[in-house]
Structure formats: C-alpha cells, structure tokens
Amino acid sequence: MSPVEPAVCAERLGRAFGELWAVRDLDLTIPPGEIFGLVGPDGAGKTTTLRMLTGVLEPSAGTARVAGYSVQGEEEAIKQRIAYMSQRFGLYGDLSVEENLNFYADLYHVPRRERADSMERLLNFSNLTPFRRRLARDLSGGMKQKLGLACALIHKPQVLFLDEPTNGVDPVSRREFWRILYGMLKEGVTIVVSTAYLDEAERCSRVGLLHHGRLVMCDTPQRLKAALPGQMYELDTAHGRRAREVLAEALGQRRVGLFGGRVHLAVTDDGELQQALSLLSRAEIELRATRRIVPGLEDVFIHAVGEAEQAT
C-alpha cells in the first residue's frame, strides 16, 4: 500500500438482502492513520458495511478497496492485512488467555519467532499479563473485550475493524480500551469502529452517520456539531418535566430533551427562544438559569435522523 492510498475507499457500495437494501450507494474514503466512527440506529447497515469492507460479505453493487485490495476477488489479501473484531468475536472459553492468543497466531500464520514478542506486547498493553493463565470464560466483560482485541491484533493489521466493541463494558474498562486504540493509532493502524454510543463517537477523528443504509452525514465531530442549524439551550428549573411537556407540545418532541432537572432545547433563532421562554412564563414555570450550550453528537444524530425521515 503506498502512503497516499486510502485505507478504505468505497464507491456506490451496496448490499441487498432480497428486496431490501441494507446498504445503498455508500461513498466513503478513509485515509491511513484515521480513526473513523460509524454510527447509526439498529438496522441502519453498520454491520453489513463492516462485513463488506472486511471481505466477509459480497457487495451487490459498487466497489470497495481496503488496504489497496478489492473486496471483490482479493478478499484473501484483505483478510491478511486487516483485523475484524465482530460483535460475536470467538474467544474460546475453555482456553486460557495465552492459549487464545496462540490460537489466533496460528490462524493468521504469525511466524513462531515473532510470536513471543507480539504476545508480550499485547498482554502488556491490555494489562492482561497477570491473567495469562486464566480461562477466558472466567474473565470479566471488560477483560474479555480486551482479550478479543489482543487476539484481533496478533498479526499487526494495517486496518482494524471493530463492531460495537464496548457494548456492556463499564466506563473504566472502556477508557482503557480506548487507550489501547490510541496506542494502535500511534503505530499507524487505521481504525474503523461502529458504535451506538455517541459519547464514544466524539473520540473519533471523523464520524459517518448511517440511516436506512445510506450515509447521511460524514465529517469531524467538531464540524458536525458546528453545522447543526440553530442553537441549543439548557434551561435549569425545579419543574423540568412540566417544562418539557409545555415545550414539546409547542415545538415538537425532537426539539426537547430532559436530563435530570435540566431541559435541553433546540431553537432556530432568538425569536423562537423568546417564544419558548414566554410559553414557560405563561405556564408559571420559573427558570433558575438559561444558558447556551454546545450541542453533543447525540443532538446532531437526532436532528439528522429527523431530517432523513422527513425527506423520505
């Protein structure tokens, strides 16, 4: 792979299952060294996209090249250059941590003399060294995820694909998991990760939003948030639930969110904010504070899904 060649390049990529297009007209270029987040609701096509890009599932339309090779006809060359940690990544519960790593090293034909080194390095950065002889089934959820990642990385891939890797993993283990990913980035590995959690997507260099099989948005988290039309306000009140009801009725459910006692409100302009505030004062709901806040990716997501649904 030459340095300028993208790690992933898909053009009008699509996959149909019978009548249904799970992914359609996907154009996506990921330069080397990037960590790219693929987000979207259940059934948006995230897993189908990853399976096509990893050479596991044949596309019905379009083309894609990964690590310089085509997913149509050169799947084997791709598989040697990538790692794929799927949602049901196969760890063997009755094998130890070390035995699982050895098994994957065999599977990927990692030469014996390189193996000891890789294994030490992976055990070390996943903090699994003290547990090397523990059976995989006796590991906690977070440790299992880290072992899965270590197994996926045993052959030093150019591109790492992860499908919702931190489902059910607690915040401390999650942060450790991301630290490992940053370590891989520093070594030049390109990472493509799907997630349903938007606070995770904030950590990516770029984020693509899939909805009904189409990529409806793709940019850096900062630019996606900046492009969100209108403004977000946080209203602090002792009557958050009533405030939410009043505002949702006037402005629509999607514009209002309740976070504990605080109401998040998306408005198009100052006039609308004033209108909202006067509605609240008419309902005799007192506000302790009103402040403009930076929207999160979740707000962007909800807005984009709303727009995409209106368009169809």
Partner: peptide, 20 residues
C-alpha cells in the same frame, strides 16, 4: 444495552413520564 440513541431518548422520555 445495545439500543440506539433515538430509541434510548424515547425510552427515557417514558421513564420521565412515569417518574412524573
């Protein structure tokens, strides 16, 4: 666990209603 953001927000709306 494993539920997308839109469904999650709807879910929390329901929870807020019940608490109310």
């Amino acid at each position: 666990s494993g539920v997308d953001p839109l469904a999650r927000r709807l879910f929390w709306d329901l929870i807020a209603h019940m608490a109310h």
